[in-house]
Simulated scan of single mutants.
Amino acid sequence: MSDDVNERLREKTMQIVSLNQKMEALQAQLSGSQRRANELGTKLTELENSLTQKDSEIQMLQTQLSTTKGVLDTVGKEMQGIKSEQTQLLAKKKPESIGASLKDELTIAEMTIGRLREDLKQFSHTTTAVLNQEEGALAKLKEVLLEVGDPKYRILNMVLAKKSIRMEEIASRLVIDMTEAHKHIEALQTAGEVQIRDGSTILPAQKYLELKVPKDAWSSMEPTDVFQELEEFIGKTDDTASIVCAMETAVEIIEQKLARSGSLIFQMRRTIDAWKKQPGNIEELTYTIKDWKGRAQALG
C-alpha cells in the first residue's frame, strides 16, 4: 500500500515538474513574442516617421519644381519676345539702313539668347539632381533660382558677392542696357538693399556692412585675446559704425579686467572719439591695436 502511494506521489511530482517546464517554455515563447512585437512596433514607428519625412520632402520638391516651372516659363517668354522683336526689326529695316546698328542689335540678341540657353541648361541639370535626391541639390536649386531669376535678385547677388561693383559691369554681365540696369538698381536702393556711390558704383546697403560685435564672447577672454579679436574684427569690415562699436566694447571690457590701465584706456577713448568725428585709416588703426595689445600684455 505504501509503495502505491509513493508511486503515485512520484507520478504527481513528475507531472508537476513537466507542467512547470511547459509553463516555462510557454513563458519564454511569450517573452519572445512580446520582444518581437516591441521590435515590430519600433520598426513601424520608424517607417511612419520616414514616410512623414518623405511626404515633407515631396512637398518641398513640388514647391521647388513649381517655382522652377514659373521661371522656365518666364525664360521661354523672354526668348520668344526676343525672337519676335528681331523679326519685327528685320521687317522694318530698310535695305540701306542695314549695317553696323543691326549687327550690334543681332549681337546683343545672340548674347541674350545664349545666356538664356545657359540658364535653361543650369535649370535642367539642377532639377534632375533634385529628382535624383543628390546631396546638396536643393541648395543648388535655390542658388540657380537666384542667379537666373528676377534681374533685381541677380544684381543684389553680384553686389553682395563683390562688395563693390560698377553699373557698367552689371549691365554687361546681365546683357542689358544701362537704362534698364539703372532702373533695377534704383528699385533695389528704394527697397534698402543697395546704395549708390558716385552715381555709378553700387555697394551693399548699410545693413549688410554692419557686423555684430560678439560682446559676450569677448567678455570671457583675457585682455590680450580681446585685442586680438578686435584686430581681426577690424580686418573684416570698413563700416565706421561697426568699428567704433567694436572699440567701445573692447575698452569697456579692458577697463574692467585690467588694473593700472588708465593711460591705455585714455588712448583708446581718444582714438574712438577721433573715429566718431572722422573715419581714420584702417591699416593705421590695426597697428594701433597691436600697440594696445603689447601694452596690455606688459600690464597683465
Rank of each mutant, 00 (worst) to 15 (best):
D4C: 07
N6F: 15
E11A: 14
M14K: 08
M14Y: 14
Q15T: 15
Q15K: 15
S18V: 07
L19V: 13
Q21G: 13
M23Y: 09
M23K: 05
E24G: 10
A25G: 09
A25Y: 15
Q27N: 10
Q29A: 04
L30N: 10
L30D: 11
R35H: 10
A37H: 12
A37D: 09
N38I: 07
N38H: 12
L40Y: 13
G41A: 10
T42W: 12
K43C: 01
L44T: 07
L47E: 11
L51I: 11
L51F: 15
T52S: 13
K54I: 09
I58A: 03
I58Y: 08
Q59Y: 15
M60Y: 08
Q62V: 11
T63N: 11
T63Y: 13
T68N: 01
T68M: 06
K69P: 05
K69N: 13
V71D: 05
S84C: 09
Q86K: 10
Q86S: 10
T87V: 12
L89V: 04
L89I: 10
K93S: 15
A100I: 14
L102H: 14
D104S: 06
I113A: 04
G114K: 00
L120P: 06
K121Q: 00
F123Q: 00
F123E: 01
S124A: 03
S124N: 07
T128H: 03
A129W: 05
N132S: 03
Q133V: 12
E135H: 05
A137P: 03
A139S: 14
K140W: 02
L141Q: 01
V144L: 01
L145S: 02
L145K: 02
E147N: 02
V148C: 05
D150L: 00
P151Y: 15
L156K: 01
V159D: 00
R166M: 06
R166V: 09
E168C: 00
I170A: 00
S172V: 05
R173K: 07
R173M: 02
V175A: 02
D177L: 01
D177R: 02
D177E: 12
H182K: 01
I185Y: 04
I185M: 01
Q189K: 05
Q189D: 05
I196L: 08
R197N: 07
G199Q: 10
I202E: 00
K207I: 03
L211E: 02
W218F: 12
M221T: 03
E222Y: 15
V226H: 15
F227R: 09
Q228Y: 14
L230R: 02
I234N: 02
T240S: 14
M247W: 11
V251S: 06
V251W: 12
K257C: 03
L258C: 06
A259I: 04
R260T: 05
S263Y: 14
S263T: 03
Q267L: 10
M268D: 10
R270Y: 13
D273E: 14
Q278R: 04
Q278Y: 10
P279K: 01
N281Y: 14
N281D: 15
N281R: 04
I282P: 03
T286K: 13
T288C: 02
I289E: 06
G294E: 12
G294S: 08
G300V: 06
